[in-house]
Amino acid sequence: MGLTTRPDTTAITLDAGGTGNEGWITTRLDFLVNWGRANSLWPMPFGTACCAIEFMASAASKFDLARFGMERMSFSPRQSDVLICAGRVPFKLAPVIRRIWQQMPQPKWAISMGACASSGGMFDSYAVVQGIDTIIPVDVYVPGCPPRPEGLIYGIMMLQKKIMKERMSNTSLRDEMAPDPTSQLYIPATRIDELSEPFGNSVHQTRSAP
């Protein structure tokens, strides 16, 4: 797409074994740093809807996110590592979640929890953002409406695996995806319109503006 600096899958699998040209010390240091990061992710819960209930269930005693190092819910973006967007995001909240994302320090990751956050879900309406990956870069999408806590935990484990694959010698996995400089969106505007047009129950409605 020419927009992202994120590596494709080949780059990730190349480094996965950590064999390559890296020395023993760097790979062990990588492992240590990644192990620490992956197991102490502090979530920034951005719960707007029923997914937040499942997220709370995940954090509560039965599923216990503390097992994954998510002991502390960070309600300040400045002390958090992973933004978990649980629920639909209306357009009115779009600048808010964008600001929260910008306030989070690197390294940071984002999980889009549930159908609404990932794609707008059933809310194909005038008020709801059709997927938060248009306004912030997303690492893991958790499907479900809402996802069960097992689903969210699986997504978190996927994120942990991704973090474990980071290498000092190749920072491409670390580089934050850059938004399109003109539109400030993470997916090109033409692609958004192309994707959003044919779906939903309002296909036959007319628009007065392009």
Binding site: D124, S125, Y126, A127, Q130, S183, L185, A189, T190, I192, D193, S196, G200, N201, S202, Q205, T206, R207, S208, A209, P210
Partner: peptide, 10 residues
């Protein structure tokens, strides 16, 4: 219109 008058990117 239920999806609003502007396109999604707009």
């Amino acid at each position: 219109p239920m999806r609003g008058r502007f396109s999604r990117s707009e």
